[in-house]
Amino acid sequence: MSTMGTLNLERVTCTFPARGANAGYTAVADVDLDVAEGEFVSVVGPTGCGKSTLLNVAAGLLAPTTGRVTVFGQNLQGINTRAGYLFQSEALMPWRTALQNVTAGLEFRGIAAEQARLHATDWLRRVGLSAHGHKYPHELSGGMRKRVALAQTLILDPKILLMDEPFSALDVQTRSLMETELLNLWAQDRKSVMFVTHDLEEAISLSDRVVVMSAGPASRLIGEFAIDLPRPRDVAEIRLTPGFVEIHKLIWTALRDEVQKAYSLSLS
């Protein structure tokens, strides 16, 4: 790992202030994470381990309590303008059509409407939604909405892509299609990706490196695994290869205890 990566999290701790009777809650503690240029890193961990907190810190939506974030060697202040963010829940503006949602970021940057529209039309074509630009989000299927969100983010050409379980709400088939599509889009210009998921298979089939977090509260990084499976990959087929099964077994051993811990915590 290079010490001067694209995105560096150094000793990041996030504590949320006490509310009423609850004591302060530490979501993540002392996390070091580097994402190199063009690297696809997945963060896996049991439910509630603070994966999303970490992503929000990288996005600049949340300032860490202690520790620091650097982006291309510079301290992050406020929103991370070099990053695009794909959210887990619905993030499209429901009052804008698919096309208008894709142009939003260009509009915010003051790019002329006609030029933005042309550019967005091209991006809708690239995610296979040419015929649906005039539709509102509620008229699109879940998979289509994710494609619009992908186009909305990628049109701004961010150098870093932050993804928070973006496909977890989709059905299995759509999900596998979207994962393949994501890999194809990513292969075109190799952005640095930080991908958060609780699905180990998804993490392995997409990533160059998988980072495992412990169960919350005060989650730490407890393991790091390089995934040297050949690219380009087909996310559906790669799961059947011996290499995949082997690495899956290896990471699962590390993850299993934490999942169990998180589960028993949720019961208590």
Binding site: A59, L61, I79, N80, T81, A83, G84, Y85, F87, S89, E90, A91, L92, M93, P94, W95, A104, G105, E107, F108, R109, Q152, T153, L156
Partner: peptide, 25 residues
């Protein structure tokens, strides 16, 4: 929706644009 707000901010909306494009609609 906090997600829609966060998304608009990540897409580069400033305070005035958030008001015009998110809060007002």
């Amino acid at each position: 929706s906090p997600t829609i707000l966060a998304n608009a901010r990540m897409l580069g909306a400033n305070g005035r644009q958030l008001l015009r494009h998110v809060y007002l609609p």
